[in-house]
Simulated assay, not measured.
Amino acid sequence: MTDSILQSPNLTLCADSNEVLNFKRDSHNYITQLFGEQLPAIRTGLFNVHLTKGIIIQPHWHTNVTELVFVISGEVMTSVFDPFTQKLMN
């Protein structure tokens, strides 16, 4: 199976993940995003999340995607709700 996007001679292979601001609380707490519109070669999206201690991302869920978290510096606690056991895993 060939992907016509990846076969394009004009395929964009780089983008700035800081161009699109998704959320901003203040200058230290903000989220930027990078998705297929800016970088068609990726099938998923990328969020740059900058949060200070004590700030949380609103609990949410995804019905048709997965989420992967990379921590570049600091610490993070993530929680996942298991719909089958009805339990929260931290």
Rank of each mutant, 00 (worst) to 15 (best):
residue 90 N to K: 13
residue 47 F to I: 02
residue 4 S to K: 14
residue 58 Q to R: 10
residue 42 I to K: 03
residue 27 S to H: 09
residue 84 F to N: 08
residue 26 D to N: 15
residue 43 R to C: 11
residue 72 I to L: 11
residue 83 P to Y: 03
residue 85 T to F: 04
residue 68 L to T: 15
residue 13 L to R: 14
residue 75 E to I: 00
residue 44 T to L: 04
residue 64 N to T: 15
residue 84 F to G: 01
residue 84 F to V: 14
residue 12 T to G: 08
residue 28 H to F: 09
residue 89 M to E: 12
residue 79 S to I: 02
residue 36 G to H: 04
residue 43 R to T: 13
residue 67 E to Q: 13
residue 49 V to A: 08
residue 16 D to I: 03
residue 18 N to M: 08
residue 61 W to E: 06
residue 30 Y to A: 00
residue 74 G to A: 02
residue 67 E to I: 06
residue 85 T to R: 07
residue 85 T to G: 06
residue 22 N to A: 13
residue 25 R to E: 08
residue 58 Q to V: 09
residue 33 Q to K: 13
residue 83 P to V: 09
residue 57 I to S: 04
residue 45 G to W: 01
residue 17 S to M: 10
residue 24 K to Q: 10
residue 74 G to N: 04
residue 87 K to P: 01
residue 38 Q to F: 03
residue 69 V to I: 14
residue 26 D to S: 05
residue 14 C to N: 07
residue 41 A to N: 05
residue 9 P to I: 01
residue 30 Y to G: 01
residue 12 T to R: 15
residue 88 L to Q: 13
residue 64 N to M: 04
residue 41 A to D: 03
residue 69 V to D: 01
residue 30 Y to E: 04
residue 88 L to G: 03
residue 72 I to E: 14
residue 75 E to Q: 05
residue 68 L to N: 11
residue 50 H to E: 07
residue 82 D to V: 00
residue 7 Q to S: 15
residue 50 H to V: 10
residue 23 F to R: 10
residue 22 N to I: 09
residue 68 L to P: 00
residue 44 T to R: 06
residue 56 I to W: 06
residue 58 Q to M: 10
residue 74 G to C: 03
residue 44 T to E: 08
residue 37 E to G: 12
residue 37 E to I: 08
residue 20 V to A: 12
residue 77 M to Y: 10
residue 69 V to L: 12
residue 32 T to V: 05
residue 20 V to H: 06
residue 23 F to S: 05
residue 78 T to N: 07
residue 43 R to L: 07
residue 78 T to F: 04
residue 55 I to P: 02
residue 17 S to I: 11
residue 51 L to W: 06
residue 41 A to P: 04
residue 16 D to E: 09
residue 20 V to T: 15
residue 2 T to M: 10
residue 56 I to M: 09
residue 57 I to V: 15
residue 49 V to D: 01
residue 66 T to L: 07
residue 26 D to I: 00
residue 5 I to P: 01
residue 48 N to T: 14
residue 18 N to C: 10
residue 34 L to T: 03
residue 16 D to S: 06
residue 6 L to C: 07
residue 72 I to Q: 14
residue 58 Q to I: 11
residue 53 K to N: 11
residue 49 V to F: 04
residue 24 K to F: 00
residue 44 T to D: 07
residue 86 Q to G: 14
residue 89 M to F: 11
residue 32 T to H: 08
residue 31 I to P: 02
residue 82 D to W: 01
residue 8 S to G: 03
residue 77 M to P: 00
residue 34 L to A: 04
residue 51 L to N: 09
residue 35 F to A: 10
residue 35 F to E: 07
residue 63 T to K: 11
residue 24 K to I: 08
residue 39 L to P: 09
residue 77 M to Q: 15
residue 27 S to E: 14
residue 64 N to W: 07
